[in-house]
Computed example of a mutant assay.
Amino acid sequence: MHLNIVFLASLAVAQAPARPAFCDSVKNAEAVVRCTASSGRIESCEVLSETPPGCGFGAAAVSILRERDLRPRQSFDRRRQTVTFTVRVPFTFDPPALT
């Protein structure tokens, strides 16, 4: 079964991790996470990769995903089905210009 799951980009921006000093130059990052869900709720997630490594984007992506209910475009019986899916969560930092 293939599910299309959409997450709003603004969620990632609102919950981006505090960046350590070595991550100060990062403008774009991403995490790839595999999750299992049943009854419309995410139960467990595993970080498959994060770029750049060590900046906390994998943990931030898991946090974002675990707070959301699944709302697949394809209808199925959410009460009885367990699904596993992989999602790429992008992070973009565009700081406001100093005036």
Rank of each mutant, 00 (worst) to 15 (best):
residue 57 F to P: 06
residue 38 S to A: 12
residue 33 V to E: 01
residue 62 V to N: 11
residue 29 A to M: 04
residue 19 R to V: 14
residue 40 G to Y: 07
residue 97 A to V: 13
residue 17 P to S: 15
residue 36 T to H: 00
residue 42 I to D: 15
residue 52 P to S: 03
residue 72 P to Q: 06
residue 81 Q to S: 14
residue 49 S to Q: 10
residue 5 I to P: 00
residue 58 G to K: 07
residue 35 C to Y: 09
residue 75 S to G: 11
residue 48 L to V: 05
residue 17 P to V: 14
residue 44 S to W: 00
residue 69 D to Q: 12
residue 92 T to A: 01
residue 76 F to S: 08
residue 8 L to H: 05
residue 75 S to W: 14
residue 86 T to L: 00
residue 27 K to S: 08
residue 83 V to C: 05
residue 70 L to T: 00
residue 14 A to Q: 09
residue 25 S to M: 12
residue 42 I to S: 12
residue 70 L to H: 03
residue 49 S to L: 08
residue 7 F to K: 02
residue 37 A to P: 08
residue 81 Q to K: 13
residue 38 S to C: 09
residue 97 A to R: 13
residue 53 P to K: 11
residue 45 C to E: 06
residue 11 L to C: 10
residue 83 V to R: 10
residue 62 V to H: 04
residue 98 L to I: 14
residue 23 C to Q: 11
residue 74 Q to E: 14
residue 61 A to F: 00
residue 96 P to A: 01
residue 72 P to K: 06
residue 88 R to W: 01
residue 50 E to F: 08
residue 11 L to R: 13
residue 15 Q to F: 13
residue 94 D to G: 03
residue 38 S to R: 07
residue 32 V to P: 00
residue 52 P to H: 03
residue 21 A to G: 05
residue 27 K to A: 11
residue 17 P to A: 14
residue 34 R to K: 08
residue 99 T to C: 15
